[in-house]
Design a protein around this nucleic acid. Structure first.
Lengths: 248, 248
DNA sequence: CTTGCAGGATTGTTGAACAATCTCTACTCT
DNA sequence: AGAGTAGAGATTGTTCAACAATCCTGCAAG
């Protein structure tokens, strides 16, 4: 860690800045030289699925998509694999790939995991409070803000996106790459579930304020209260989705 | 198993049996027609990695493996993708696939998740105790038994396998497919970590008895005590691995 | 109404080919 | 001599065309 800083600026900050910059550049590079074709195709498909253009249950034809996406069948199948791992597609042997159709049991399973993981992250924050700068909460503020803006504009899917970003960033506070990966998959599946709703307003609107309340508790370092709030939040959200299923 | 009994047996049980049988048949079918080539190649590689024939850091050459496994490059790459998703391989763009080298941070990350998930499963058992037949604990007994047998034979890697099976089956009690998938990946990565030990005896032996103790608490329906034991178990196991890293 | 059987369509797999990138060696220049 | 550089060789990324295996559809027969 320590270095041969010969200048008179505080070495710690200087070094930390450099480290942060190095990480940033590395991340940018990794983002740029992605496996080009396969990941680019996966990006397009991912958006089509999460935005609802491809409904749950829909089949994705290989030959059709090779023409649309301008990639070979092999590359397309690699993109399929990527999305399969994210839970956005399922393979049926010799029958093709489909957008998964989730049901009530999946809702229960999904929220069971969300509760365990998210609540534990928030509870665990109290133990590493000192090393957690306030700037780490910045992305959460941005999510609440954009959720509120989207609500004003009436674009409820965007509200859902922002709310999901809030929880993704909340999980990110734990600095656990494996937890981040798991969360990414869970939220992708949650997206699929949202499509059971005709009008997603009552599915997203109530949670804007509740996210903000949790965020304020985090700022006040009331981690236990925040965890309790979050738990109730997830229970209610699950109830809402299950109700939407029954009313469907 | 069940039959289309027109006799006077209670219909409910009859129907439930039929349902169970249908699920069993479906599972068997799904297990049989696996994606043949790609999954078969992945099976071979998976065993090579988990059994240590391919050490962490080793590179897997494509042309070499196409000859050994008798599959085409495209199919081999699909097998690589499968194992990448399990955490047993990592891709480095334009450089190839490698067996990952995990370090202390991975140990901490991994065990953090194991503690949260496994402990929560055990705690949650108390709420669904009535619907949990004693036969569900049968696989756990088998794991303890085979661990003990392997210890007598001195085959410590087999002890590790049995111990991991115990925890996999423990998680399985939650009946959560997503949790099962996550666990499968975590345990695969744990396997990679075991290879840092020259002599794996002290890494596995102490935990045979501790698994049995936990199992006995489960049978006695002392779920809180079992959860506490499990928590300590995982803390100690993490310590042992970290110590092995430092002594390496 | 169910069962069995073509025929057509789709997926699974292969092999070869070319482009892009990395690694290593050997060379040049100071 | 040592550092930097250019290029050859090897490996990976991607595409294409073809064939084998499997699934789905519709129709005929019982």
């Amino acid at each position: 860690m320590s270095d041969d800083a010969k200048v008179s600026t505080p070495q710690r900050t200087d070094d930390e800045d450099r480290q942060a910059w190095l990480r940033g550049v590395a991340a940018d590079m990794a983002r740029l030289d992605r496996s080009s074709s396969a990941e680019r195709a996966a990006d397009v498909l991912r958006r089509s699925i999460t935005e609802g253009a491809l409904r749950p249950g829909a089949q994705l034809s290989e030959i059709e998509l090779t023409e649309v996406l301008q990639v070979s069948r092999n590359t397309l199948r690699e993109a399929f694999r990527l999305l399969t791992h994210e839970g956005l597609l399922v393979y049926k042997l010799h029958r093709g790939v489909f957008v998964p159709e989730l049901d009530e049991r999946d809702v229960v399973d999904l929220f069971r995991l969300r509760r365990v993981l998210e609540v534990d992250v928030v509870r665990g924050l109290s133990e590493r409070d000192p090393e957690l700068p306030a700037s780490r909460l910045e992305p959460l503020h941005a999510d609440v803000e954009s959720a509120r803006a989207a609500a004003l504009a009436g674009t409820w899917p965007a509200v859902g996106t922002a709310n999901m970003g809030f929880h993704r960033h909340l999980i990110g506070l734990a600095d656990s790459p494996r937890l981040d990966a798991i969360t990414s998959r869970l939220l992708a599946e949650l997206r699929l579930l949202f499509h059971v709703m005709a009008t997603p307003r009552e599915l997203h609107e109530p949670y804007i304020a509740r996210n903000q309340a949790i965020l304020e508790l985090l700022e006040a370092r009331e981690y236990e209260d925040a965890a309790d709030d979050l738990h109730r939040y997830l229970v209610d959200s699950e109830k809402g989705l299950l109700a939407a299923f029954k009313a469907r």
